[in-house]
Design a protein around this nucleic acid. Structure first.
Length: 312
DNA sequence: TTGTGTTTTATTGCCTCC
DNA sequence: GGAGGCAATAAAACACAA
């Protein structure tokens, strides 16, 4: 838009005229401007010199836009500069420094401050407003990056905790399985002939399967059995029950755990016998019934998790 | 030198607030 | 309704590797 280029035009002209008048008699360091309670640069026409003063302090003599700095000082160049088509011109390092300092003090721009900064820097107020606008956008992006890093590290910590808990859970589960089997064996020995025809259900699984279930953390068959026995209605023996076709058993089968598949003998157990069996063999252990979703792994990385969250 | 990616300046359109 | 802020975007300026 012409106004923006025009801003550079007018402001540069004003600063140009200033600089050609020579250095300001009473220079004000940049720090003094921002650190002092009262702003010595915000003093009417005198304040217009403040940026030039700062610029002088930085060792340069021409606080103009860089594109002009690269040119000679002749009137022809000046004329050429003022008549060239509108171009985007970067602010000088000093102008940016000045704006940065001001931004540090307050990242919002009141109208008076905008006017004053524009005067000090020899820019259009609109240019100052745009600079603050863009600066706030950059600051927000940076802030988001910081927040992201904080969240990421927090996530990593939580993920590590989660993984540790998962391992601990599997370890405890394996321990429970072992103890349960020991208990079942003891009960079996105690029960003796009474259950001789039926205890084929509870034969000890092969050692390999035990080891696998302990090491890989899979839901062991015995644990599954335990869960089913623990249920109020022991329909595990009911071949008609729809539960038989799904749940843990089917999931185990689907999981390809063929090392030890629980195959109940459906031949001759009455409901009473089942109840008795359940009561006699049921250790006082209650496991929460966990659905598959309860074991779902979290996303592998924080990024995935963030994207996952974002998708909701 | 040139192609390409990044940064900076500026515009546009929408939204909110007074 | 106007002013100002913000998000999205364009485009110029800049940096840099090949």
């Amino acid at each position: 838009m012409a106004a923006c280029g025009g801003g550079g035009f007018n402001s540069n002209l004003s600063v140009l005229i200033q600089s050609q008048r020579g250095p300001c008699a009473a220079s004000q360091p940049l720090e003094a401007f921002f650190l002092s309670g009262t702003s010595p640069t915000f003093l009417g026409s005198r304040s217009v010199m403040s940026f030039a003063d700062v610029h002088q302090a930085n060792g340069s003599t021409r606080p103009f836009l860089r594109s002009y700095d690269h040119e000679d000082n002749g009137d022809d160049d000046l004329d050429e500069y003022f008549h060239q088509p509108e171009k985007k011109r970067r602010l000088t390092v000093d102008q940016v420094q000045f704006l940065e300092k001001s931004f540090e003090v307050e990242n919002k721009l009141e109208p008076e401050r905008k006017i004053q900064l524009a005067k000090d820097l020899g820019l259009q107020p609109r240019q100052v407003a745009i600079w603050f606008q863009n600066r706030r956008a950059r600051w927000k992006t940076k802030q988001l990056e910081k927040d992201y890093e904080v969240l990421e590290s927090s996530y990593d910590g939580l993920k590590a905790d989660y993984d540790n808990l998962l391992k601990e859970k599997e370890r405890l589960k394996a321990e429970v399985n072992l103890l349960t089997n020991e208990l079942l064996l003891k009960e079996k020995e105690k029960g003796g002939s009474e259950l001789s025809d039926k205890d084929a259900f509870y034969q000890e699984p092969p050692a390999k399967a035990m080891a696998d279930s302990a090491s890989e953390g899979e839901v062991s068959t015995v644990a599954s059995k335990q869960e089913d026995i623990s249920s109020d209605k022991s329909d595990m023996f009911d071949s008609e029950s729809p539960h038989y076709a799904d749940g843990v058993h089917s999931s185990l089968l689907e999981a390809g755990d063929s090392s030890y598949v629980f195959q109940p003998d459906q031949s001759d157990l009455s409901q009473d016998e089942e109840d008795n069996l359940s009561k006699s063999l049921l250790p006082p252990l209650v496991f929460p019934k966990l659905e598959d979703d309860d074991y779902s792994d979290p996303p592998a990385s924080f990024e995935d998790h963030a994207i996952w969250c974002w998708s909701y």
